[in-house]
């Protein structure tokens, strides 16, 4: 475990009094995983991210990082902790009067690392991120995607144990978003970089996250594997992220028994349904089906109508073979 947060509370004072921003939030991040911190705007995601590297002091709670509680450490200890955590802010925050090269080299220069080594480390990162041709440009001359990558490079160059990304795709077009997500997954797989990603973008969750922490008005409503988060969405327990499919009444009216089946992992692509249906001689009518490619495996949703004599046995056997099954009617 690289980071674990226990009963974190944070409130801000404003005109209308004290407002609770984080309410007893607990979760953890394992080494080498990507955790998504998701929720609507104003849910407290950025505030949570800022507490993780102590930019935002908390009211109470503990943050264990690398084996020690980092809440309440003195300033010089805090500084050394921060050097191990890279942050890419939503607004990138590149230094305005430094070139891309100087921006990326900056965290190394302040540590007094030799110019030769700095050059080597910067060059290896910029070639990985495709920024070689922009090294002498200033931030104001870069596109949003390039600024984003420069900010990621600046975070990566320190070889941090953990990188915090705040809404990394909110300002990017779909193609640039795709490239960025590939990059994150790639860095995670090849360099074993651990990420915490704040987002409200479903694509980011699907393609990058191993686990999801779902915040609603400062409370953690869910923390668990990504596919379980999708189950929650399908079960209509998370309304912030689109609603599950509503089938047309006209389609439903003629049908007998309706089942909603969720598949996850290897089994998604196996003909489970077909095999069991044949065994019990059940007729299946597929009314709806989709498969999402999540990072840790495919996730399928299906709504089927069934007909036949051994319906109960069929349902029982199917329930054991799929991730989730419920009778809709």
């Amino acid at each position: 475990m690289i980071l674990s947060v226990d009963r974190l509370n944070l409130s801000f004072e404003d005109k209308s009094g004290r407002r609770k921003i984080l309410d007893d939030v607990s979760f953890s991040i394992e080494e080498g995983e990507i955790v998504g911190i998701v929720g609507l705007s104003g849910a407290g995601k950025t505030s949570l991210l800022r507490t993780l590297n102590l930019l935002q002091p908390v009211d109470s709670g503990s943050i264990m990082f690398d084996g020690q509680n980092i809440v309440g450490l003195n300033e010089s200890k805090v500084r050394s902790i921060r050097k191990k955590i890279g942050v890419v802010f939503q607004s990138y925050n590149l230094f305005r009067y430094r070139t891309v090269y100087q921006n990326i080299a900056f965290p190394l220069r302040i540590q007094g690392i030799s110019r030769g080594e700095i050059r080597e480390r910067v060059m290896s990162i910029v070639s990985e991120l495709g920024l070689e041709h922009r090294l002498s440009a200033y931030p104001s001359q870069l596109s949003g995607g390039e600024q984003q990558r420069a900010a990621i490079a600046r975070a990566l160059v320190m070889d941090p144990k953990l990188i915090l990304l705040d809404e990394p795709t909110s300002a990017l077009d779909p193609r640039t978003t795709g490239r960025l997500l590939d990059l994150v997954v790639n860095l995670n797989e090849r360099r074993r970089v651990t990420f915490a990603v704040v987002t409200h973008d479903m694509d980011v969750i699907k393609r990058t996250c191993d686990r999801v922490a779902y915040l609603q008005n400062g409370k953690l409503h869910f923390f668990g594997p990504t596919h379980e988060f999708f189950v929650k969405i399908e079960n209509n327990e998370v309304s912030d992220f689109g609603s599950p499919l509503e089938l047309e009444r006209s389609v439903l009216s003629g049908q007998k028994r309706l089942l909603r089946v969720l598949f996850w992992g290897e089994r998604t692509h196996e003909p489970v349904l077909w095999e069991i249906a044949r065994e019990f001689d059940i007729m299946i009518n597929i009314l709806y089906g989709k498969i999402e490619e999540l990072k840790n495996g495919p996730f399928g949703t299906m709504i089927i109508a069934i007909d036949g004599h051994k319906q109960d046995q069929f349902i029982e056997k199917l329930r054991d073979s799929v991730f989730f099954l419920e009778e809709v009617r």
Binding site: L55, R79, S80, R82, K83, S91, N93
Partner: peptide, 17 residues
Amino acid sequence: PSGIIDSSNSMGLNKWQ
């Protein structure tokens, strides 16, 4: 911009730096 101060702090700069 406060973001630039934030990101500098997040790199662990001391006051002098």
